[in-house]
Simulated scan of single mutants.
Amino acid sequence: MDDGEREKALLTALTTEHYALQTSRAGTIAEATGRATIFLSVLSAALIGLGFVATNDKVVRPYLAAVLPTLVIIGVLTFLRLVETTVENSLDLRRIQRIRAYYHHRFAAEHDFFADAVIADDAMSTAWNLVGTTPGRWEFMLTTAALVGAVNAVLTGLGIALVAAAAGSGGVLTVLVGVLVAVVAFGVQFVYIVRKSAGRRA
């Protein structure tokens, strides 16, 4: 195979890979949206059910005892998968930008086509800048995973507050315990998002 044929074969492979990565990104976004929608739909159904049993003291406690752990489990599983889709999306974006950078170096010549894809020292930051996102750990607060993590934290804090109230704790103490647990739960999940994402940037 001469250089011309090799170049043509490489370009064909890169074009195919580019399309596959774009499809993969679309798939991760669709999956994240679908999973978050399912979780929030289950949460909404649980709240509607709570409205029906809230006036019956004999039913409301068993209902909450069954529903809250279920919601937390579903929420945690949803959160873990959303973190994975966030990482997968980031890696796909970086790989796409590497292909676009090749297009620029090999074919653009004096034109500025694909010039924004030239890889800098921090390839991941460059990739995210191209889609209008400022790289940084606080940017993860805006992800779907962080949204679900916040709901999980509230549910966890609520569950602990109800347990504290059932144990005879005062109203103020119960609220403080619930808020503290919720804040800690969200912090743990946020740290997990950041570490998981940082560990897969290479």
Rank of each mutant, 00 (worst) to 15 (best):
D2I: 11
D2V: 11
R6Q: 12
T12N: 07
T12Y: 04
T15F: 04
T15I: 14
E17G: 08
L21W: 01
T23V: 13
T28A: 10
A30R: 12
G34Q: 08
T37A: 14
I38V: 15
L40N: 05
S41Y: 01
L43S: 10
L47S: 11
D57P: 02
V59A: 14
V59S: 06
P62H: 09
A65T: 11
V67G: 01
P69E: 11
L71S: 02
L71T: 03
V72L: 09
I74C: 06
T78W: 01
L80Q: 06
R81A: 04
R81M: 11
E84N: 13
E88D: 12
E88A: 15
S90T: 06
Q97C: 04
R98N: 01
R100C: 03
A101K: 01
Y102T: 11
H104E: 04
H105Q: 14
R106Q: 14
A108M: 12
A109F: 06
E110P: 04
D112E: 10
D112L: 06
F113Y: 15
F114S: 05
F114Y: 10
D116A: 12
A117G: 07
A117N: 11
V118I: 14
I119K: 07
A120V: 13
A120L: 11
A120I: 04
S125L: 02
T126S: 11
W128Q: 07
L130P: 01
P135T: 14
G136Q: 08
R137G: 06
A145P: 01
V151S: 05
N152F: 02
L155Q: 02
G159C: 05
G159T: 07
A164T: 11
A165W: 00
G170Q: 15
T174H: 05
T174M: 08
L176P: 00
L180W: 05
V181P: 00
A182C: 12
V183M: 09
V184Q: 04
R201D: 03
